[in-house]
Amino acid sequence: MNYLKSEEIMELFQNRLGKQAIIDSRIETKIAGIKKNTYQVIWIGVKPNFFKEAVKILVELHYPHFAIISGIDIDKEIELVYHFSIYYGEKGKEISINIFTFLSKDNLNIPTITDLIPGAQTSERETKEMFGVNFEGLPSLPNLFLPYDFPSGVYPLRKDEKGVGVKVSEGDEVKKGE
């Protein structure tokens, strides 16, 4: 199999998506063991409207292993980090690829990737429940992790007024680092 180097993968993304689509990109090299072998982690930030295209490029490159979507509430935006890995199956060849994108809270819409990677359904549903992100094309299914009768419009992992605050139980003061 013909493996591309991390730099080449980055180039491929830049060429296919165009410069304006990419917010940020970097390659990290990590060292492990006595022999100081290395592995690489790629971070690519894309604009939401180019996101689906970025995943398509990845699928064409090598069907990726999808790990999870991490969501981060940053003031007016929600950042979604999709963790993928490609080129598994051979020693030391695997490259982790993290594609992140920022969604404005006024427009929390992102296309689903379940048509490309069906295994992403669980994670998309979780992100939908926890952050209120709407995945376009994801069938409307009952709550997966939250109770069925959970109030709508409350998203537990949001840090704003739509979240649940920091209070965990009655009489529990907000304490830091005990």
């Binding site: 072998n37 592995y39 020693k91 695997e94």
Partner: peptide, 20 residues
């Protein structure tokens, strides 16, 4: 054929021959 210890060896696994 997928095993993180083999595909992306981290920690001591980087020195060892781990086969999925």
């Amino acid at each position: 054929n997928k095993d993180v210890r083999q595909d992306q060896p981290y920690a001591a696994y980087a020195d060892l021959e781990v086969q999925a």
